[in-house]
């Protein structure tokens, strides 16, 4: 059984959170998964509908005030070890919305991000590169090579 689990590489499940995105990055994420030309399932990843099944979480959008608490609650429901990927410039830096009255981001003020994929929106291949990077970090965390920062990952709901 140990040999079996050594040979088989586990497959991360992806989960999307829209933190007030314009839907541009969400369309690219859907494209990455649903169109045979890109087909993220080749990499052993698939989207799941529940945060409790997820391993890698893809966050889009600049984290608006209205959606902040919901994003944090959903993010906390994802079991450890999880890897957070910020897709698009909005979650990374606020992008063109930075400094807006309803913008609470960038998202790393609240959530420890692991991988950034900038772009407005990033092209599907770029997202796939980010997912591959996240998968590597996730496997390292599963094998105990990379620290999971579990104690640093405590997020308190306001």
């Amino acid at each position: 059984m140990n040999l079996f689990s050594d040979i088989v590489v586990r497959s991360p499940w992806l989960y999307r959170i829209n933190a007030g995105s314009c839907n541009g990055c969400d369309v690219e994420l859907a494209t990455t998964a649903c169109i045979p030309r890109y087909d993220v399932e080749r990499l052993g990843c698939r989207y799941c509908g529940s945060p409790r099944h997820a391993d890698i979480v893809l966050i889009t959008g600049p984290l608006t005030l209205r959606v902040r608490d919901k994003v944090l609650r959903v993010w906390q429901e994802i079991p450890e070890p999880k890897v957070t990927v910020a897709v698009g410039i909005c979650p990374i830096s606020g992008g063109v919305f930075r400094g807006g009255h309803s913008i609470e981001g960038p998202i790393d003020r609240y959530i420890p991000v692991d991988v950034n994929v900038p772009g407005c929106p990033p092209r599907p291949q770029s997202i796939m590169e980010g997912v591959l990077l996240a998968k590597k970090i996730w496997l390292d965390r599963l094998n105990g090579i990379a620290p999971g920062h579990k104690e640093e990952r405590h997020v308190s709901l306001p």
Partner: peptide, 14 residues
């Protein structure tokens, strides 16, 4: 060049 995915440590060096 669109190879833009990077880890959080490189965020401000990107």
């Amino acid at each position: 060049d669109w190879h833009n995915a990077h880890t959080q440590e490189d965020k401000y060096d990107w």
